[in-house]
């Protein structure tokens, strides 16, 4: 049963995006498109030819590689009682695919000769350089505190301590950043660099890429919701609780997003460095038993 869930989720993420559009519209006093609009967009994009802007294999493969990494992230996460492909050290694998996703995005941007995609790629690299280590530090703290490298075991053996609470706060922040919400959608800034790496994609490839972004966003939020729910709830109820928590987090993030303007890269980097420093301090605290 749990094996099927990661396969269902990709079909839900466009609906979540539709809900985000509705929520945003509500905040902005608009009616907004139907909840299924993202699906309609995908269906029409899938029917369109995708133009190969660079002629390179990297460019053509990138959307599918990104989709693959996002799916791999999903498969490593726990759903209710168990994670379908969980193993000792799946946390490392999760971080690996998480980083691979960004690497693919960067490579696809570099494979076209366009200043927009190049700018998008370079922004993605810069952000990754500060936020990925920060994420790794948080994860290391959880591993240290629970003595495990498996996501499922961590969630079951975490005990609240000052450093763990701090790590939770950081995890929420980093999830928000990595989910690519404004003010951190810098690498895909539409009004500045026309969507960054996405600007040269069209048709099917664009749909796959966009879908991959949504799945990755969902995976990040699911990880956060698992960390919040699973230490306290078990059994079948856990899955429902996970989903409801993820949905709540998602909507709260959308609301926060619509109250903000986009950061400039240097400001985001400065915040990332602060997060990284905070993570390191927490890790040291955890090391000394706090």
């Amino acid at each position: 049963m749990n094996l099927v869930i990661p396969l269902i989720i990709p079909f839900i993420t466009p609906i979540l995006d539709g809900i985000a559009r509705k929520v945003r519209a509500k905040i902005q006093d608009r009616i907004g498109p139907p909840v299924l609009q993202t699906w309609y967009d995908f269906i029409s994009l899938f029917g369109m030819e995708s133009i190969d802007a660079s002629g390179s294999l990297t460019f053509r493969l990138a959307p599918y590689l990104a989709f693959g990494s996002a799916m791999a992230m999903l498969f490593l996460l726990p759903y209710g009682d168990s994670s379908p492909f969980g193993f000792k050290g799946d946390l490392i694998a999760f971080i690996y695919f998480f980083a691979l996703f960004s690497a693919v995005v960067v490579l696809s941007g570099m494979s076209v000769e366009s200043s927009y995609t190049m700018a998008g790629a370079s922004r993605e690299i810069t952000l990754s350089l500060v936020f990925k280590p920060a994420f790794a530090v948080v994860v290391a703290l959880f591993a240290l505190k629970s003595g495990s490298l498996s996501i499922e075991e961590i969630t079951h053996s975490l005990h609240l301590a000052p450093s763990v609470i701090g790590a939770y706060a950081l995890l929420i922040y980093i999830t928000y950043v990595e989910a690519g919400f404004i003010p951190y959608d810098i690498a895909e800034a539409e009004t500045e660099i026309l969507g960054g790496v996405l600007s040269e994609y069209s048709g099917r490839a664009l749909a796959v890429f966009l879908w991959a972004f949504q799945i990755k966003r969902f995976a990040m939020i699911w990880l956060l919701s698992s960390m919040i729910v699973l230490p306290f709830v078990g059994g079948v109820k856990a899955l429902i609780a996970q989903f409801l928590t993820a949905l709540t987090i998602f909507i709260l993030m959308v609301v926060y997003e619509s109250m903000n303007a986009r950061h400039r890269l240097d400001i985001a980097v400065r915040k990332g460095i602060k997060a990284l420093a905070a993570g390191c301090i927490l890790l040291i605290l955890a090391f000394f038993g706090w």
Binding site: I27, D29, A189, S258, N260, A261, R262
Partner: peptide
Amino acid sequence: AAHLTGFDTAFMRVWE
């Protein structure tokens, strides 16, 4: 100006 910085909520409200 709000739209260009990605602040679409302010953009919509001002245009209202």
